[in-house]
Design a protein around this nucleic acid. Structure first.
Lengths: 363, 363
DNA sequence: GTGAAAGCGCTAACAT
DNA sequence: ATGTTAGCGCTTTCAC
């Protein structure tokens, strides 16, 4: 009768695992004592504690995590899902931004004792319904995202961006999109650009809508014509097409060619640079280039491309910290968190001293 | 007494969730009946089944997955870890190959009812020790990988590549590295190349060691001098340096410049192409280029770059199928699986009709 | 300082 | 056809 389950129906795998009760029996102690010894709780004599530990080690005991979690009432499991890309539910990892956000979220949560489960973009109830998730992180939900509603309806806490603000059970951490746009535009303006053009996806993500609005405000404030080209679809070809449109020159602006390009869409910096060059531009000679991107290739082009980083690691850190606080201390009161971006200025957006025309002294 | 736990110590979260017993009480039925009704098991009258379901729906009942899994003796949770990148444990997602392998593994396993937990590259016991993993997929372990040993010692089944062959509890699915190399070399040879050079990382991964060996054999078989340049470190700059070395011309080969370049290291195709051009080569005019890569930018360069795809989706599919078979039917007997690669021929490796010298008619 | 027993929420064997 | 009950493996209260 030292053997397995008289009732249970689990398919008999290799060997019946060593359980707490087995260790207890072997050591001549009770389950309670062994449990306390192993967890460092309770008041036990050092000898007993050591004996329990030694026996457990010798028998190769490994506590059953599922049982622990059932007892604890918390699965220590969180979901991670992205709102965009619903038509290609796994493509998000090929975006450097999401790849890094995903990795950073997994890393941070694991360090805090929560395992992260990867869910397909735009996934529905059925995908996570029997998944014991303590909470779900929803990265960049689209406007009126079904996922968020479904999760909240299932009483699963949601951690997302500001677009979920005000809903009970939803918490947010967001990128300072407005600040980012202003910083980038201020930078190219300082470098002498007067006709910047923005390339931004046609998406309902909070980030993109905010970028669009911030750009409009900035242009109005600086008396600069508002030039925007929308990217119709995800992927490099669409962004390249948008860049071509952007550089074709806006008839409404007297056909004057832009002198700075701010690409907010996810695209490969080398490909954007190539496209700009094919159109006869010299970067940074007659066109300054800034890309919102986490792509490391930006550092290795010639010239290197200035990027605006959304700092995915910082976002993940803040999001998980918030999640743990809520889950473990019920900290409902805190407001959201705004994560600042970082502009990495490289040669592509620094106007070189101009030898022709009105030359200024080099700094 | 309809309320919560007299014994348990879980921190009181929002509202006590609806349990099976609550539904049973409300519907005036027993737990068994409701459970059977919800799971579609047992023999129940249609009315009772419907009543149970209706009540559950009305009360917003969601079964506790942890309890189910404890009962079932299986957590339906698998780990995923990569062997390389141990010094930058989360960088692997920035590699298009691993990004796609990771996504595909998550997708496939979820479809089969297993949630995938992302683990840091090279992670140790402590990272997964209390994680209720039914199995772990170890992607591209390095030689003598600690991870594999630790997992097997903890009696967790391991799914990996052929390097784990023969160990009890370890199963494999592998890329046909040899076939891949031969296919690529045959291709450039057909296109007229006679002095191919291989660029490959200095890694102990099974894939890379096999690539190296297959290349050696192929060169011997074809009476071609064996030209190999090792990449010293991960990342684009190191690969670019290796490419430069490769194209500098091997003194031992009479300084003759290579006429084909096979880059097996993970690198950005546009950057490799730029590097080759900076060295004065014309692709495909005097140098054919083939990259082992899943990077989509390869299709969008000018000319597009021929790639050898390792078909991560196919690998994931095969690996998870194997995993499920072993976990659910104890299928220990099957041998491993070899996944063939796919060569996507694009302009960078197709010798154009040569107008100068010995011109041939264009096809 | 140590152990017996309850119970986390669920499913299945066994009555009825 | 439906209900009673045991038990998955663990932690914790409580009594000794």
């Amino acid at each position: 009768m030292t053997e397995a389950s008289p009732h249970g129906g689990q398919p008999s795998q290799p060997l019946p695992r060593v359980r707490l009760v087995d260790v207890a029996r072997e050591a001549g102690l009770s389950k309670t004592t062994v449990s306390a010894a192993l967890n460092g709780t309770g008041r036990l004599s050092p000898e007993v504690r050591e004996k329990a530990r030694e026996t457990a080690r010798r028998m190769g005991y490994r506590p059953n995590a599922t049982a622990r979690r059932l007892r604890a009432g918390r699965a220590r499991l969180i979901g991670y899902v992205v709102g965009e890309f619903a038509d290609a539910p796994w493509a998000f990892l090929e975006s450097p931004y999401f790849a890094r956000l995903t990795a950073a979220t997994a890393a941070t949560s694991l360090r805090r004792g929560y395992a992260m489960v990867l869910l397909p973009a735009g996934s529905l109830q059925s995908e996570w319904a029997d998944l014991a998730l303590d909470a779900v992180i929803v990265a960049d939900p689209v406007a009126d995202d079904r996922i968020v509603d479904d999760l909240l309806a299932a009483r699963i806490p949601v951690f997302s961006d500001r677009s979920v603000e005000g809903r009970p059970g939803a918490y947010w951490v967001d990128v300072d999109a407005g600040g980012a746009v202003r910083e980038a535009l201020d930078h190219v303006r300082e470098q002498g650009a007067r006709r910047p053009v923005l390339v931004v996806p046609d998406s309902t993500t909070r980030f993109h809508t905010e970028v669009f609005a911030a750009h409009r405000d900035w242009c109005a404030a600086h008396g600069v014509p508002e030039r925007v080209v929308r990217v119709e679809a995800p992927g490099n070809p669409a962004v390249v097409r948008a860049v071509e449109t952007a550089l074709a020159g806006d008839p409404a602006a007297d056909g004057a060619r832009p002198d700075a390009l701010l690409v907010v869409a996810e695209a490969s910096p080398p490909l954007v640079l190539d496209a700009v060059r094919r159109l006869g531009h010299d970067v940074p000679g007659d066109l300054l280039l800034v890309c919102v991107s986490e792509d490391v290739t930006a550092e290795h082009t010639e010239p290197p491309v200035t990027t605006l980083s959304l700092r995915p690691e910082a976002i993940a850190e803040a999001g998980v910290a918030r999640l743990v606080a809520v889950l473990e201390h019920g900290a409902r009161e805190l407001p959201g968190v705004l994560v600042p971006t970082r502009l990495d200025v490289r040669a592509s957006s620094v106007r070189p001293p101009q030898p022709a025309c009105t030359s200024r002294p080099a700094t």
